[in-house]
C-alpha cells in the first residue's frame, strides 16, 4: 500500500463517519416524536415566558432549583421565583377533560414529558409533591 492509498482510505472513512453523524440523529428524531410539553398556567411577565428566558431554563433549570433548594433548606429563604413548588404550581395543570392532575408516571406531566424524552432520571418526586396542593393550615390569626 502506498502512502496516498492509505491517506485516501482514511479520508473515505472520515467522510463516511461524517455522513453517519449527520444522519443518525436525524433518524432518531424521526423515530421519536419531540415531547409535547404541557403549557404553563401563566407567563412570568409581559416580556418573559418563564423565570429566565426559555433556552436558559431548558439548559440550566436544575442549577436554579438546586441553588434555591439549599438556600431554602438551610437558611429559610422562601422566595418563589426558583422554587420547585412554584414550578409545579405553574407548570402542572389539571387535565381539562378529566379534571385531574397528570401523574408523574405519564408524559402529560410537565417534568416527565421532557425527562422521559431525554432519559434523565430524577428523584425529586420521591419526596416532593408532583401537583399543586393548596396549603390550608395557617393559623387564622396569621392569615393575610
Amino acid at each position: 500500500m502506498t502512502t496516498t492509498s492509505i491517506l485516501s482510505h482514511a479520508l473515505r472513512r472520515w467522510v463516511w463517519a461524517g455522513l453517519l453523524a449527520l444522519l443518525v440523529p436525524g433518524l432518531a428524531a424521526a423515530a421519536t416524536p419531540l415531547p409535547k410539553i404541557p403549557k404553563p398556567r401563566a407567563k412570568f411577565s409581559a416580556t418573559q415566558d418563564c423565570v429566565q428566558p426559555i433556552p436558559e431554563m431548558r439548559r440550566n433549570h436544575m442549577k436554579y432549583i438546586l441553588h434555591h433548594r439549599d438556600e431554602t433548606m438551610h437558611q429559610g429563604i422562601r422566595t418563589t421565583r426558583y422554587s420547585l413548588k412554584a414550578c409545579i404550581n405553574c407548570h402542572v395543570q389539571k387535565d381539562p377533560k378529566t379534571g385531574e392532575y397528570p401523574s408523574i408516571e405519564t408524559k402529560d406531566h410537565f417534568c416527565n414529558s421532557c425527562h422521559s424524552y431525554a432519559a434523565v432520571h430524577i428523584d425529586c418526586f420521591q419526596c416532593h409533591s408532583t401537583r399543586p396542593v393548596e396549603y390550608k393550615g395557617y393559623h387564622p390569626l396569621a392569615r393575610r
Binding site: 413548588k85 401523574s103 409533591s129 401537583r131
Partner: peptide, 12 residues
C-alpha cells in the same frame, strides 16, 4: 404522590 404535600417533602 397522592401522599405528598408541597410544604412537607417526605420520602422513603
Amino acid at each position: 404522590p397522592e401522599e405528598h404535600v408541597p410544604w412537607v417533602p417526605r420520602g422513603k
